[in-house]
């Protein structure tokens, strides 16, 4: 019995080797028939109108562009427990995906342990600039959002629209692209109206919608008439802004649909810009070691304006000039 298995295994192995050789000899048809497969692990829901949705939308956009026969992706969302996410990353890697994305900076410490076990698989994680190259890892890409750029543009508009001169920010935890966004936003307000005051409230959580809502109430009670905020718990703050009739600036995804009355503009992430670069590198044999960033210049960050909001033409053109200035380098944002 055992001998039979041995023979079978040898035959299978031989078959695989031959198939591989065959593939090398006539590359074109075999390569084209096989789609590029991506798997992504995300901390919140794919429809969170924020961080996770931005990645889901990007993968959907790539699939629409390349076609389902050439590009496929799988996802696990809602993995706010890092251990669960680590298990999912390992599962996807062992299933032979071409690229496994760990969409959350909290997943990094798990990824640095998993990636060396799958040297043939490419991994990506963000938002960060660390590819673990200094730890000898060669198959991890890093990506980040220069969210201070869109934050600056939002800040410029907020300063123009605020009548009370008090602008409130609802942030999650002072880290990553949330921190960059808030600092850019403050710089944009300060450059436009030095008298205006930006008040920041970090609620200490990416998920506590009730506290985000109460933080918005507090800002409004303290005199703020324009609000912004980042991460998936801001839906609570947007609800309050709508009820109390103050303006809102969004980031990460387009949040206009949630409250068309009061959303002015959004910075929307288009990760497909950097994902396409990674896919090209992987197809040419480079599996990691490079860090990417989306920004206003490369089109990875786009400012969307709510068509239902009556934004004064002067403010709109100032915002568009600011986008151009940041993209061509004539406006530089100094972060503290």
């Amino acid at each position: 019995m055992r001998k039979t298995y041995l023979v079978l295994a040898t035959l299978l192995l031989a078959g695989m080797l031959l198939a591989a050789c065959g593939g090398a000899a006539t590359p074109a048809p075999a390569e084209e028939a096989k789609p590029f497969r991506v798997a992504v692990v995300m901390p919140s829901a794919i429809n969170d109108l924020a961080f996770s949705q931005s990645m889901y939308d990007a993968l959907s956009a790539i699939q629409a562009e390349k076609g389902e026969e050439n590009f496929q992706f799988a996802y696990s969302d809602g993995l706010f427990v890092v251990d669960d996410a680590a298990a999912a990353i390992r599962d996807y890697a062992s299933q032979g995906y071409d690229l496994v994305i760990a969409h959350g900076s909290q997943y990094g410490s798990s990824l640095v342990e998993i990636a060396p076990d799958f040297p043939e698989t490419s991994f990506a994680w963000g938002t960060t600039v660390d590819t673990f190259a200094d730890q000898g890892v060669t198959n991890v890409f890093a990506y980040e959002a220069r969210s201070e750029q869109g934050g600056y543009v939002n800040g410029v508009m907020a300063a123009k629209l605020s009548e009370s001169g008090i602008i409130g920010v609802v942030g999650p935890i002072e880290t990553g692209d949330a921190k960059l966004y808030v600092e850019g936003f403050k710089a944009g307000v300060a450059a436009t109206d030095p008298q205006a005051e930006v008040r920041v409230n970090w609620i200490g959580s990416f998920s506590d919608v009730a506290l985000a809502s109460e933080a918005a109430q507090t800002h409004i009670n303290a005199g703020a008439d324009v609000l912004t905020g980042t991460a998936q718990m801001v839906t609570g703050a947007i609800g309050v802004a709508k009820e109390r009739g103050v303006l809102w600036f969004g980031t990460q995804s387009d949040q206009t649909s949630l409250s068309p009355e009061i959303v002015v503009a959004n910075q929307v992430y288009h990760w497909e810009v950097v994902l396409n670069q990674m896919i090209d590198l992987i197809e040419s044999g480079t599996l990691g070691g490079q860090a990417f960033a989306i920004d206003l210049a490369n089109g990875g960050e786009v400012i969307t304006y709510n068509p239902d909001f009556d934004l004064p033409a002067e403010v709109r053109s100032l915002a568009e000039d600011t986008v151009k200035g940041i993209a061509d380098g004539s406006i530089t944002i100094t972060l503290p």
Partner: peptide, 18 residues
Amino acid sequence: SLSIGLLNVFQQNLTSGM
């Protein structure tokens, strides 16, 4: 009292540990 009182939204894990 959260979803149709204070917040007027629902999303995944709305209560987040309350």
